[in-house]
Design a binder for these strands. Structure first.
Lengths: 197, 197
DNA sequence: GTCTATACATCGATAGAC
DNA sequence: GTCTATCGATGTATAGAC
Protein backbone atom coordinates (compact mmCIF):
# COMPACT_ATOMS: atom_id res chain seq x y z
CA UNK A 1 0.00 0.00 0.00
CA UNK A 2 1.16 3.48 -0.77
CA UNK A 3 -0.30 6.95 -0.85
CA UNK A 4 1.20 7.80 -4.23
CA UNK A 5 3.51 6.27 -6.80
CA UNK A 6 7.01 7.69 -7.30
CA UNK A 7 5.93 8.84 -10.75
CA UNK A 8 3.03 10.73 -9.26
CA UNK A 9 5.19 12.31 -6.58
CA UNK A 10 7.83 13.38 -9.10
CA UNK A 11 5.17 15.11 -11.16
CA UNK A 12 3.67 16.85 -8.14
CA UNK A 13 7.06 18.20 -7.09
CA UNK A 14 7.83 19.17 -10.68
CA UNK A 15 4.70 21.34 -10.66
CA UNK A 16 5.81 22.92 -7.39
CA UNK A 17 9.25 23.75 -8.77
CA UNK A 18 7.91 25.10 -11.99
CA UNK A 19 5.37 27.28 -10.26
CA UNK A 20 8.08 28.69 -8.03
CA UNK A 21 10.88 29.27 -10.55
CA UNK A 22 9.32 29.30 -13.98
CA UNK A 23 8.55 26.67 -16.55
CA UNK A 24 12.01 26.44 -18.06
CA UNK A 25 13.79 26.48 -14.72
CA UNK A 26 13.02 22.83 -14.02
CA UNK A 27 16.25 21.08 -13.05
CA UNK A 28 16.66 17.33 -12.82
CA UNK A 29 19.11 17.58 -9.93
CA UNK A 30 16.85 19.92 -8.01
CA UNK A 31 13.79 17.82 -8.77
CA UNK A 32 15.59 14.69 -7.63
CA UNK A 33 16.68 16.32 -4.40
CA UNK A 34 13.12 17.32 -3.58
CA UNK A 35 11.86 13.76 -3.89
CA UNK A 36 14.82 12.23 -2.09
CA UNK A 37 16.54 10.91 -5.18
CA UNK A 38 19.61 11.66 -7.19
CA UNK A 39 19.03 13.11 -10.61
CA UNK A 40 20.10 9.90 -12.29
CA UNK A 41 17.43 7.89 -10.54
CA UNK A 42 14.71 10.01 -12.12
CA UNK A 43 15.59 8.39 -15.42
CA UNK A 44 14.13 5.15 -14.07
CA UNK A 45 10.71 6.81 -14.15
CA UNK A 46 11.08 9.24 -17.04
CA UNK A 47 13.41 8.78 -20.00
CA UNK A 48 14.12 12.51 -20.23
CA UNK A 49 13.12 15.91 -18.96
CA UNK A 50 10.90 16.41 -21.96
CA UNK A 51 9.04 13.27 -20.96
CA UNK A 52 8.32 14.98 -17.64
CA UNK A 53 7.02 18.05 -19.43
CA UNK A 54 4.93 15.77 -21.58
CA UNK A 55 3.41 14.06 -18.56
CA UNK A 56 2.70 17.47 -17.05
CA UNK A 57 1.03 18.51 -20.29
CA UNK A 58 -1.26 15.49 -20.22
CA UNK A 59 -1.74 16.04 -16.53
CA UNK A 60 -3.02 19.55 -17.00
CA UNK A 61 -5.34 18.69 -19.87
CA UNK A 62 -6.85 15.85 -17.87
CA UNK A 63 -7.39 18.18 -14.95
CA UNK A 64 -9.31 20.50 -17.25
CA UNK A 65 -11.36 17.60 -18.61
CA UNK A 66 -12.12 16.41 -15.09
CA UNK A 67 -13.39 19.83 -14.12
CA UNK A 68 -15.63 19.95 -17.16
CA UNK A 69 -17.06 16.55 -16.33
CA UNK A 70 -17.73 17.81 -12.82
CA UNK A 71 -19.92 20.57 -14.19
CA UNK A 72 -23.64 20.06 -14.09
CA UNK A 73 -24.45 21.95 -17.28
CA UNK A 74 -27.61 24.07 -17.24
CA UNK A 75 -30.33 23.15 -19.71
CA UNK A 76 -30.05 26.45 -21.54
CA UNK A 77 -27.27 26.06 -24.15
CA UNK A 78 -26.20 29.67 -23.86
CA UNK A 79 -25.91 29.38 -20.09
CA UNK A 80 -23.88 26.20 -20.61
CA UNK A 81 -21.54 28.05 -22.95
CA UNK A 82 -21.12 30.81 -20.42
CA UNK A 83 -20.31 28.33 -17.69
CA UNK A 84 -17.78 26.56 -19.87
CA UNK A 85 -16.07 29.78 -20.86
CA UNK A 86 -15.84 31.01 -17.29
CA UNK A 87 -14.39 27.71 -16.17
CA UNK A 88 -11.82 27.76 -18.94
CA UNK A 89 -10.75 31.33 -18.25
CA UNK A 90 -10.39 30.61 -14.57
CA UNK A 91 -8.40 27.49 -15.33
CA UNK A 92 -6.03 29.48 -17.54
CA UNK A 93 -5.53 32.40 -15.19
CA UNK A 94 -5.29 30.65 -11.84
CA UNK A 95 -1.95 29.08 -12.81
CA UNK A 96 0.00 31.01 -15.40
CA UNK A 97 2.76 28.43 -15.62
CA UNK A 98 0.26 25.73 -16.49
CA UNK A 99 -1.26 28.06 -19.07
CA UNK A 100 2.19 28.63 -20.51
CA UNK A 101 2.84 24.90 -20.81
CA UNK A 102 -0.52 24.18 -22.41
CA UNK A 103 -0.95 27.08 -24.77
CA UNK A 104 2.37 28.75 -25.46
CA UNK A 105 5.32 27.23 -27.29
CA UNK A 106 7.96 28.23 -24.82
CA UNK A 107 10.16 25.22 -23.99
CA UNK A 108 12.96 24.96 -26.58
CA UNK A 109 12.72 21.42 -27.89
CA UNK A 110 9.44 20.33 -26.36
CA UNK A 111 6.63 19.06 -28.52
CA UNK A 112 3.75 17.20 -26.88
CA UNK A 113 3.58 13.55 -27.83
CA UNK A 114 0.78 12.20 -29.99
CA UNK A 115 -1.07 10.76 -27.01
CA UNK A 116 -0.72 14.05 -25.16
CA UNK A 117 -2.21 15.87 -28.12
CA UNK A 118 -5.09 13.46 -28.04
CA UNK A 119 -6.14 14.75 -24.64
CA UNK A 120 -5.78 18.33 -25.84
CA UNK A 121 -8.01 17.53 -28.81
CA UNK A 122 -10.62 16.12 -26.45
CA UNK A 123 -10.72 19.48 -24.69
CA UNK A 124 -11.14 21.32 -27.98
CA UNK A 125 -13.86 18.93 -29.19
CA UNK A 126 -15.77 19.49 -25.98
CA UNK A 127 -15.77 23.18 -26.73
CA UNK A 128 -16.95 22.55 -30.28
CA UNK A 129 -19.88 20.51 -28.98
CA UNK A 130 -21.00 23.20 -26.57
CA UNK A 131 -20.81 25.79 -29.31
CA UNK A 132 -22.75 23.58 -31.69
CA UNK A 133 -25.48 23.49 -29.05
CA UNK A 134 -25.89 27.24 -29.36
CA UNK A 135 -26.01 26.94 -33.15
CA UNK A 136 -22.38 27.79 -33.91
CA UNK A 137 -21.17 25.22 -36.41
CA UNK A 138 -19.16 27.27 -38.92
CA UNK A 139 -15.47 26.46 -38.28
CA UNK A 140 -14.57 30.11 -38.82
CA UNK A 141 -17.01 31.05 -36.06
CA UNK A 142 -15.39 28.54 -33.75
CA UNK A 143 -11.95 29.96 -34.57
CA UNK A 144 -13.31 33.38 -33.79
CA UNK A 145 -14.57 32.12 -30.44
CA UNK A 146 -11.25 30.56 -29.45
CA UNK A 147 -9.43 33.75 -30.44
CA UNK A 148 -11.73 35.86 -28.26
CA UNK A 149 -11.18 33.71 -25.21
CA UNK A 150 -7.47 33.31 -25.90
CA UNK A 151 -7.11 37.07 -26.18
CA UNK A 152 -8.63 37.77 -22.79
CA UNK A 153 -6.50 35.12 -21.15
CA UNK A 154 -3.31 36.20 -22.93
CA UNK A 155 -3.72 39.83 -21.98
CA UNK A 156 -4.65 39.01 -18.41
CA UNK A 157 -1.72 36.68 -17.84
CA UNK A 158 0.82 38.84 -19.63
CA UNK A 159 -0.09 42.22 -18.16
CA UNK A 160 -1.84 41.65 -14.87
CA UNK A 161 -1.41 38.06 -13.67
CA UNK A 162 -3.81 37.29 -10.86
CA UNK A 163 -6.06 40.25 -11.66
CA UNK A 164 -9.32 40.54 -13.56
CA UNK A 165 -8.90 43.62 -15.73
CA UNK A 166 -9.46 41.57 -18.87
CA UNK A 167 -11.25 38.47 -17.59
CA UNK A 168 -14.10 40.56 -16.25
CA UNK A 169 -14.88 41.39 -19.87
CA UNK A 170 -15.75 37.76 -20.54
CA UNK A 171 -19.55 37.99 -20.43
CA UNK A 172 -19.46 41.05 -22.60
CA UNK A 173 -17.25 39.21 -25.09
CA UNK A 174 -19.62 36.25 -25.18
CA UNK A 175 -22.58 38.53 -25.82
CA UNK A 176 -20.66 40.27 -28.54
CA UNK A 177 -19.72 36.96 -30.11
CA UNK A 178 -23.24 35.56 -30.06
CA UNK A 179 -24.63 38.78 -31.50
CA UNK A 180 -22.06 38.73 -34.27
CA UNK A 181 -22.82 35.12 -35.21
CA UNK A 182 -26.58 35.79 -35.14
CA UNK A 183 -26.15 38.90 -37.28
CA UNK A 184 -24.01 37.06 -39.79
CA UNK A 185 -26.41 34.12 -39.98
CA UNK A 186 -29.43 36.34 -40.56
CA UNK A 187 -27.52 38.23 -43.27
CA UNK A 188 -26.64 34.97 -44.96
CA UNK A 189 -30.25 33.76 -44.82
CA UNK A 190 -31.49 37.00 -46.34
CA UNK A 191 -29.00 37.46 -49.14
CA UNK A 192 -28.07 33.98 -50.31
CA UNK A 193 -30.39 31.69 -52.26
CA UNK A 194 -31.79 28.85 -50.21
CA UNK A 195 -30.60 25.30 -50.59
CA UNK A 196 -33.11 23.18 -52.47
CA UNK A 197 -34.94 21.07 -49.94
CA UNK B 1 34.40 55.23 -40.68
CA UNK B 2 32.51 52.01 -40.20
CA UNK B 3 29.44 50.38 -41.65
CA UNK B 4 28.02 49.37 -38.29
CA UNK B 5 29.07 49.41 -34.66
CA UNK B 6 29.98 46.15 -32.89
CA UNK B 7 26.88 46.60 -30.73
CA UNK B 8 24.70 46.87 -33.80
CA UNK B 9 26.30 43.84 -35.41
CA UNK B 10 25.92 41.75 -32.26
CA UNK B 11 22.23 42.56 -32.16
CA UNK B 12 21.73 41.74 -35.82
CA UNK B 13 23.38 38.37 -35.41
CA UNK B 14 21.44 37.76 -32.19
CA UNK B 15 18.20 38.19 -34.16
CA UNK B 16 19.46 35.74 -36.76
CA UNK B 17 20.30 33.12 -34.15
CA UNK B 18 17.06 33.55 -32.30
CA UNK B 19 14.98 33.29 -35.45
CA UNK B 20 16.79 30.09 -36.36
CA UNK B 21 16.88 28.29 -33.03
CA UNK B 22 14.24 29.87 -30.83
CA UNK B 23 14.23 32.76 -28.40
CA UNK B 24 15.67 30.88 -25.45
CA UNK B 25 18.33 29.14 -27.52
CA UNK B 26 20.50 32.23 -27.70
CA UNK B 27 23.99 31.26 -26.64
CA UNK B 28 26.77 33.70 -25.84
CA UNK B 29 29.42 31.38 -27.25
CA UNK B 30 27.56 30.88 -30.49
CA UNK B 31 26.76 34.56 -30.74
CA UNK B 32 30.39 35.45 -30.12
CA UNK B 33 31.62 32.99 -32.73
CA UNK B 34 29.31 34.48 -35.36
CA UNK B 35 30.73 37.96 -34.84
CA UNK B 36 34.33 36.80 -34.59
CA UNK B 37 34.66 37.11 -30.82
CA UNK B 38 34.92 34.86 -27.83
CA UNK B 39 31.86 34.76 -25.65
CA UNK B 40 33.58 36.68 -22.89
CA UNK B 41 34.32 39.63 -25.13
CA UNK B 42 30.62 40.20 -25.65
CA UNK B 43 30.47 41.39 -22.07
CA UNK B 44 32.37 44.48 -23.16
CA UNK B 45 29.33 45.54 -25.14
CA UNK B 46 26.54 44.05 -23.04
CA UNK B 47 26.75 43.41 -19.29
CA UNK B 48 24.67 40.24 -19.54
CA UNK B 49 22.58 38.15 -21.87
CA UNK B 50 19.46 39.76 -20.49
CA UNK B 51 20.86 43.12 -21.56
CA UNK B 52 20.99 41.75 -25.09
CA UNK B 53 17.37 40.65 -24.85
CA UNK B 54 16.53 44.08 -23.53
CA UNK B 55 18.20 45.79 -26.47
CA UNK B 56 16.33 43.45 -28.82
CA UNK B 57 13.10 44.36 -27.06
CA UNK B 58 13.70 48.07 -27.59
CA UNK B 59 14.86 47.30 -31.10
CA UNK B 60 11.62 45.59 -32.02
CA UNK B 61 9.39 48.24 -30.48
CA UNK B 62 11.25 50.96 -32.34
CA UNK B 63 10.83 49.02 -35.57
CA UNK B 64 7.09 48.94 -34.97
CA UNK B 65 7.03 52.66 -34.21
CA UNK B 66 9.01 53.39 -37.36
CA UNK B 67 6.53 51.48 -39.46
CA UNK B 68 3.65 53.36 -37.94
CA UNK B 69 5.32 56.65 -38.67
CA UNK B 70 5.79 55.51 -42.24
CA UNK B 71 2.05 55.07 -42.65
CA UNK B 72 0.14 57.78 -44.42
CA UNK B 73 -3.07 57.46 -42.42
CA UNK B 74 -6.34 57.88 -44.34
CA UNK B 75 -8.58 60.75 -43.34
CA UNK B 76 -11.38 58.44 -42.25
CA UNK B 77 -10.66 57.45 -38.62
CA UNK B 78 -12.16 54.00 -39.05
CA UNK B 79 -10.02 53.35 -42.09
CA UNK B 80 -7.02 54.54 -40.10
CA UNK B 81 -7.86 52.09 -37.31
CA UNK B 82 -8.15 49.28 -39.83
CA UNK B 83 -4.79 50.14 -41.31
CA UNK B 84 -3.16 50.25 -37.90
CA UNK B 85 -4.64 46.93 -36.86
CA UNK B 86 -3.58 45.23 -40.06
CA UNK B 87 -0.08 46.56 -39.72
CA UNK B 88 0.14 45.39 -36.14
CA UNK B 89 -1.14 41.91 -36.90
CA UNK B 90 1.28 41.57 -39.77
CA UNK B 91 4.11 42.76 -37.57
CA UNK B 92 3.25 40.16 -34.93
CA UNK B 93 2.81 37.24 -37.29
CA UNK B 94 5.66 37.80 -39.73
CA UNK B 95 8.20 37.04 -37.01
CA UNK B 96 6.92 34.81 -34.23
CA UNK B 97 10.12 35.01 -32.22
CA UNK B 98 9.90 38.78 -32.13
CA UNK B 99 6.28 38.48 -31.08
CA UNK B 100 7.30 36.10 -28.32
CA UNK B 101 9.91 38.51 -27.03
CA UNK B 102 7.59 41.50 -27.11
CA UNK B 103 4.34 40.05 -25.85
CA UNK B 104 4.92 36.81 -24.01
CA UNK B 105 6.73 36.36 -20.72
CA UNK B 106 8.85 33.46 -21.81
CA UNK B 107 12.49 34.13 -20.88
CA UNK B 108 13.06 32.98 -17.28
CA UNK B 109 14.53 36.02 -15.55
CA UNK B 110 14.01 38.66 -18.21
CA UNK B 111 12.12 41.84 -17.44
CA UNK B 112 12.38 44.76 -19.84
CA UNK B 113 14.16 47.76 -18.36
CA UNK B 114 12.32 50.97 -17.60
CA UNK B 115 13.57 52.68 -20.74
CA UNK B 116 12.56 49.67 -22.82
CA UNK B 117 9.09 49.82 -21.35
CA UNK B 118 8.94 53.46 -22.31
CA UNK B 119 9.14 52.55 -25.98
CA UNK B 120 6.50 49.87 -25.50
CA UNK B 121 4.24 52.45 -23.86
CA UNK B 122 4.69 54.73 -26.85
CA UNK B 123 3.34 51.96 -29.05
CA UNK B 124 0.35 51.47 -26.80
CA UNK B 125 -0.36 55.19 -26.58
CA UNK B 126 -0.33 55.39 -30.35
CA UNK B 127 -3.06 52.77 -30.42
CA UNK B 128 -5.05 54.65 -27.81
CA UNK B 129 -4.92 57.80 -29.92
CA UNK B 130 -6.17 56.05 -33.04
CA UNK B 131 -9.01 54.48 -31.06
CA UNK B 132 -9.91 57.82 -29.52
CA UNK B 133 -10.27 59.14 -33.06
CA UNK B 134 -13.06 56.65 -33.70
CA UNK B 135 -14.71 57.64 -30.44
CA UNK B 136 -13.40 54.84 -28.23
CA UNK B 137 -12.22 56.46 -25.02
CA UNK B 138 -13.45 54.10 -22.30
CA UNK B 139 -10.39 52.25 -20.95
CA UNK B 140 -12.41 49.04 -20.75
CA UNK B 141 -13.19 49.37 -24.45
CA UNK B 142 -9.52 49.80 -25.21
CA UNK B 143 -8.70 46.70 -23.16
CA UNK B 144 -11.33 44.86 -25.10
CA UNK B 145 -9.72 45.99 -28.34
CA UNK B 146 -6.23 44.86 -27.33
CA UNK B 147 -7.61 41.49 -26.23
CA UNK B 148 -9.35 40.96 -29.57
CA UNK B 149 -6.20 41.68 -31.56
CA UNK B 150 -4.01 39.73 -29.14
CA UNK B 151 -6.31 36.73 -29.44
CA UNK B 152 -6.09 36.55 -33.20
CA UNK B 153 -2.33 36.87 -33.12
CA UNK B 154 -1.91 34.38 -30.29
CA UNK B 155 -4.01 31.73 -31.98
CA UNK B 156 -2.37 32.29 -35.34
CA UNK B 157 1.16 32.08 -34.02
CA UNK B 158 0.49 29.16 -31.69
CA UNK B 159 -1.50 26.94 -34.01
CA UNK B 160 -0.66 27.87 -37.57
CA UNK B 161 2.45 30.06 -37.73
CA UNK B 162 2.79 31.65 -41.13
CA UNK B 163 -0.83 31.02 -42.06
CA UNK B 164 -3.91 33.23 -42.03
CA UNK B 165 -6.63 31.05 -40.52
CA UNK B 166 -7.13 33.53 -37.68
CA UNK B 167 -5.66 36.74 -39.05
CA UNK B 168 -8.12 36.75 -41.95
CA UNK B 169 -10.82 37.29 -39.34
CA UNK B 170 -9.35 40.68 -38.51
CA UNK B 171 -11.77 42.91 -40.42
CA UNK B 172 -14.68 40.94 -39.08
CA UNK B 173 -13.34 41.39 -35.55
CA UNK B 174 -12.94 45.13 -36.03
CA UNK B 175 -16.50 45.43 -37.32
CA UNK B 176 -17.72 43.39 -34.38
CA UNK B 177 -15.79 45.57 -31.97
CA UNK B 178 -17.03 48.85 -33.41
CA UNK B 179 -20.61 47.58 -33.44
CA UNK B 180 -20.30 46.50 -29.83
CA UNK B 181 -18.93 49.85 -28.70
CA UNK B 182 -21.62 51.72 -30.65
CA UNK B 183 -24.34 49.51 -29.20
CA UNK B 184 -23.06 49.99 -25.70
CA UNK B 185 -22.76 53.75 -26.09
CA UNK B 186 -26.30 54.10 -27.43
CA UNK B 187 -27.61 51.94 -24.58
CA UNK B 188 -25.85 54.13 -22.08
CA UNK B 189 -27.22 57.29 -23.68
CA UNK B 190 -30.75 55.90 -23.60
CA UNK B 191 -30.88 54.46 -20.11
CA UNK B 192 -28.70 56.65 -17.95
CA UNK B 193 -29.65 60.17 -16.89
CA UNK B 194 -27.66 62.84 -18.65
CA UNK B 195 -24.99 64.84 -16.95
CA UNK B 196 -26.17 68.31 -16.06
CA UNK B 197 -24.67 70.70 -18.59
C1' DG C 1 15.88 0.64 -7.61
C1' DT C 2 19.01 3.44 -5.81
C1' DC C 3 23.33 4.62 -4.93
C1' DT C 4 28.34 6.50 -6.03
C1' DA C 5 31.35 7.85 -9.36
C1' DT C 6 32.53 9.59 -13.53
C1' DA C 7 32.08 11.50 -17.87
C1' DC C 8 30.81 14.90 -21.68
C1' DA C 9 29.12 18.89 -23.67
C1' DT C 10 26.80 22.91 -22.78
C1' DC C 11 25.65 27.19 -20.34
C1' DG C 12 26.39 32.38 -18.20
C1' DA C 13 29.75 34.79 -15.96
C1' DT C 14 34.26 36.52 -13.85
C1' DA C 15 39.40 37.44 -13.11
C1' DG C 16 43.40 38.74 -14.86
C1' DA C 17 47.21 38.76 -18.46
C1' DC C 18 48.43 41.24 -22.54
C1' DG D 1 39.32 45.01 -26.25
C1' DT D 2 40.42 40.57 -26.67
C1' DC D 3 42.32 36.82 -24.92
C1' DT D 4 43.11 32.36 -21.70
C1' DA D 5 41.72 30.17 -17.76
C1' DT D 6 38.41 28.99 -14.64
C1' DC D 7 34.07 28.59 -11.98
C1' DG D 8 29.72 26.58 -10.90
C1' DA D 9 25.88 25.29 -12.94
C1' DT D 10 23.00 22.55 -16.35
C1' DG D 11 20.98 17.85 -19.04
C1' DT D 12 22.31 13.52 -20.22
C1' DA D 13 24.60 9.16 -19.96
C1' DT D 14 27.15 4.94 -18.42
C1' DA D 15 29.37 1.59 -15.17
C1' DG D 16 29.15 -0.91 -11.29
C1' DA D 17 28.32 -1.68 -6.06
C1' DC D 18 24.54 -2.97 -3.01
Amino acid sequence: MHTSSPTREILDVAWELVRADGLSALSMRELGARVGLRAQSLYVYFPSKHAIYDAMFTNANRELLDRRRALDPPADPTAALRELAHQFVEFCTEDTVRYQLLFQRTIPGFEPSEQSYAVAREVLDWGRRVLADVGVTDPADFDLYTALIAGLVAQQNANEPGGDRWTRLLDRVIDMFLAEVARRNSNTDATLPREPS
